[in-house]
């Protein structure tokens, strides 16, 4: 089985984040078997594959939530070390999970600064955990983040997340990832539970991320969405690479075949 990265069509843009030969085992399950993956800035890289192909696992490895058993990380060509979520976020890698992991009991601004709440200056005699929160600063930051993504349906950053729609929540989860000085934003099935209008809203947000020169990884099962937002498509199957395609030079049928049957080695190449 080869794990070499096949790029079909024109030369790929220089990778911002790249991994080579990633292996991940869960007990007896060999979920990732030497996967290569890369994404450049200002591009949306779709990651597709059948259920259980290892998409979410790969993403969690990239975000430091799972420790790879083997493999190498490169950031702008330089070897990097990602062993914890903190490592990943220091490198600017942020993930929006399939379950959004928002706190429904807190408001939008609190969710956006969760874990890195601003505190008022001048209380340095107290441990940081007990200094007074600067909740107005939090709201200002939240408003900026929401405005940048142009989420127009959101009325107030003081609304509790529990009362928001799925699309609004998705946008907030994305805003949280973007707000943290990130360069890589990874989205796991962001539109899986959304209706047409809300899917549209999220796709607009994803396109905006590309405009702001983020490297975006986009996992989805929906071919239409993928062909609308992505620049390249990486196909995984049974924990290995099938191929990487340039979106403008392929079509949904070809991707579906690659996802379900892989590339027939006898027939040579997918192009």
């Amino acid at each position: 089985m080869t794990s070499e990265n096949k790029v079909v069509g024109q030369a790929a843009p220089p990778a911002h984040l790249a991994v080579r030969g990633i292996h991940k085992r869960f007990g007896g399950v060999h979920a990732l078997r030497g996967v290569d993956f890369e994404v450049a800035r200002g591009e949306v890289m779709a990651l597709v594959g059948d259920n259980g192909a290892g998409k979410s696992t790969l993403m969690k490895v990239l975000a430091g939530a799972h420790l790879a058993d083997d493999g190498a990380f490169f950031l702008d060509g330089k070897p990097a070390e990602v062993t914890s979520p903190n490592d990943a976020s220091e490198l600017g890698i942020q993930i929006v999970y399939q379950d959004l992991a928002l706190c429904e009991n807190l408001d939008v601004s609190a969710n956006l600064s969760l874990g890195s709440e601003p505190v008022k200056p001048g209380w340095s005699f107290l441990p940081r955990l007990l200094r007074p929160l600067d909740d107005l600063e939090m709201e200002v930051k939240a408003k900026k983040a929401i405005d940048r993504l142009e989420v127009r349906t959101l009325q107030s950053v003081r609304a509790k997340v529990g009362g928001l729609s799925g699309g609004q929540r998705q946008a907030i989860a994305i805003a949280r990832a973007v707000g943290a000085e990130s360069t890589v934003v990874m989205l796991d099935e962001p539109t899986a539970a959304l209706g047409v209008a809300q899917t549209r809203q999220v796709l607009e947000v994803v396109k905006r991320l590309r405009e702001t020169n983020h490297a975006v990884v986009y996992i989805s099962h929906n071919m239409r969405d993928i062909f609308e937002v992505s620049d390249r498509i990486t196909v995984l199957r049974h924990g290995t690479n099938v191929a990487t395609y340039t979106t403008s030079e392929t079509n949904p049928d070809e991707i579906v075949v690659a996802m379900t049957r892989g590339l027939d080695t006898e027939n040579g190449n997918a192009a």
């Binding site: 429904e104 009991n105 609190a110 874990g115 890195s116 709440e117 505190v119 200094r131």
Partner: peptide, 23 residues
């Protein structure tokens, strides 16, 4: 009104989320 207190509410609302943001 403190980050500690906020973390109490965050853990109570969604412990997994709190863990992921490094609490």
């Amino acid at each position: 009104s403190t980050p500690y207190g906020r973390s109490l509410f965050a853990v109570g609302g969604n412990a997994e989320s709190a863990r992921r943001v490094g609490m």
